[in-house]
C-alpha cells in the first residue's frame, strides 16, 4: 500500500469527508455525549475501535456479501461487534466499562458505522478499510473533543473535568479551571448547546474551505494572466 493512498485516507477522514462535519452522520451520540471534553473522548475512542473492527470484518468477507442482502448483513455484523465489545469490556475491564459503558450501546445508533461499511469497507482491501476506520474514527473523535471543549468551557468554565474518572487518579490534575468563580452557562451543557456548537464548527470548516478555494483560484488566475502576457 502506498504512502500517498494512506495519506489520502487520513485527509478524507479528518477533513474532506469528516463524518461529523461533512457527512453529518452519527449526530445522535455526538450531540448527546459531547457535554465535556472527557465524555467526548470516551465516546470517540469507543467509536473508533468499533469502526476499525467492523470495517475489517466487512472488508474481509466482502466477496461473500451479496448486494441485495448487504444492509441486513452489515446490521448483524455491527450489532454483534458492539455486543461483543460491551460484554468483554464488562467482564475484563469493569472500571472502564462503568465509565464508557453508557457510550457503547450509543454506538449502535451511529450511522457513520454502517455508512463506512457501505461506502468503503465493502469495496476496498482489508488494510485500506481498517485504516479508513481508524481515520474516520479519529476525525469523529476530534470533532467530539473540540465540541466537548467548547461546551465545557462555556458551560462550566473549565476543561477536562472528570479526567480522573476515565484515566485514573493522576489525571485529576489535568482539569484546568479557565474562569474561576464562574457560575456556568447551563445552555451550553444542555442539548441546544450541542446544536449551536456543532453549527459553529461546521460554519468554521466551510469558511476555511472557501477561503482556501478562493486563494487557489486567485493564484491560478494570476498564473494564467502571467502566461498570457508572456
Amino acid at each position: 500500500m502506498s504512502l500517498s493512498s494512506s495519506l489520502n485516507i487520513l485527509k478524507q477522514g479528518l477533513w474532506t469527508n469528516n463524518q461529523a462535519l461533512v457527512a453529518l452522520l452519527g449526530l445522535c451520540p455526538l450531540l448527546a455525549v459531547s457535554s465535556t471534553a472527557i465524555n467526548g473522548l470516551g465516546l470517540g475512542v469507543a467509536t473508533m475501535l468499533t469502526l476499525m473492527l467492523t470495517n475489517l470484518i466487512i472488508s474481509a468477507i466482502r466477496r461473500w456479501i451479496r448486494t441485495e442482502i448487504r444492509i441486513p448483513m452489515f446490521v448483524i455484523i455491527i450489532a454483534c461487534v458492539v455486543t461483543a465489545i460491551e460484554l468483554l469490556m464488562s467482564a475484563h475491564f469493569h472500571e472502564l466499562y462503568l465509565i464508557l459503558g453508557i457510550f457503547v450501546p450509543l454506538i449502535v445508533t451511529n450511522c457513520a458505522i454502517i455508512g463506512r461499511a457501505e461506502a468503503y469497507a465493502s469495496k476496498n482491501s482489508v488494510i485500506h478499510s481498517t485504516l479508513d476506520g481508524l481515520f474516520m474514527g479519529l476525525g469523529f473523535t476530534l470533532v467530539l473533543v473540540i465540541l466537548g471543549i467548547i461546551r465545557e468551557l462555556v458551560g462550566y468554565g473549565s476543561i477536562f473535568r472528570g479526567a480522573d474518572l476515565m484515566l485514573g487518579e493522576w489525571a485529576g490534575r489535568l482539569t484546568i479551571t479557565v474562569f474561576p468563580h464562574y457560575d456556568g452557562l447551563l445552555f451550553a451543557i444542555l442539548p441546544p448547546g450541542a446544536f449551536m456548537g456543532l453549527a459553529v464548527l461546521i460554519a468554521l470548516k466551510n469558511k476555511i474551505d472557501r477561503v482556501k478555494a478562493a486563494r487557489t483560484q486567485e493564484i491560478n488566475s494570476v498564473q494564467v494572466g502571467l502566461e498570457a502576457r508572456s
Partner: peptide
C-alpha cells in the same frame, strides 16, 4: 462471548 463473560461480569 456471553458464556465466557457471564461469570466475570
Amino acid at each position: 462471548v456471553n458464556w465466557h463473560s457471564q461469570p466475570y461480569i
